Simulated scan of single mutants.
Amino acid sequence: MRNTSFVILAALLVTACNDGAQPAANVAMNEVAANEADATNYQAEVIALPVAAQEGVFLRAVRDARLACQKVTKSERLEDRQGNPTWRATCDGNNPHLISITRDGTAKIVSRTDAPRG
């Protein structure tokens, strides 16, 4: 909603400044460009976090997947998988999970099938 309001406001300001001289196609292109520029790259956001904050993200992802995890006790960055940054997050000292973060913020988790469920 915030992005849409900003784009509409920007389009109205451009139209007012140009006395309506800007073609509608240009306004639409400007809206598309504004939306693309404002898209958040969650991969970069997670990579930039301090380790403790990253581990908080991993804890939330594991719990959202309904896997048992009281605390992420260790995490390490691995090679990217399918172009996504990936970490091994260990819960409670013994349950490892591979977590990949997509650009839109989705956490993809690969865990052993015998890992305890929450």
Rank of each mutant, 00 (worst) to 15 (best):
T15N: 11
N84F: 02
N41F: 06
T90H: 01
A33L: 13
T106A: 08
V14I: 14
N41I: 02
C69I: 00
A61L: 11
A89Q: 04
E76P: 01
D104L: 00
Q43L: 06
N30A: 13
A37P: 00
K71G: 03
A34E: 04
P50T: 05
P23V: 00
A65F: 04
R117G: 03
G93M: 04
V46P: 04
R112P: 09
M29W: 06
A53M: 11
A25R: 11
R112H: 11
C17W: 05
K108Q: 12
S100D: 02
M1L: 07
A21Y: 03
S100Y: 01
T15F: 12
Q82W: 14
N41E: 08
G83M: 05
G83P: 01
W87G: 01
G93W: 01
C91D: 00
A10S: 13
W87S: 01
R81L: 12
E36Q: 14
P23E: 09
R2K: 07
Q54A: 02
R103V: 15
P116F: 06
A44L: 05
G20I: 05
T4N: 04
L13G: 03
V72C: 09
I101W: 01
R117K: 15
L13N: 10
F6I: 09
R112C: 07
N26K: 11
A25W: 06
G93N: 07
G105I: 03
A37M: 10
L59E: 11
S75L: 06
N94H: 12
W87C: 01
A37W: 02
A11H: 05
L49K: 14
V14A: 15
R66M: 03
E55Y: 00
A33G: 01
K74F: 13
N18G: 12
P23G: 06
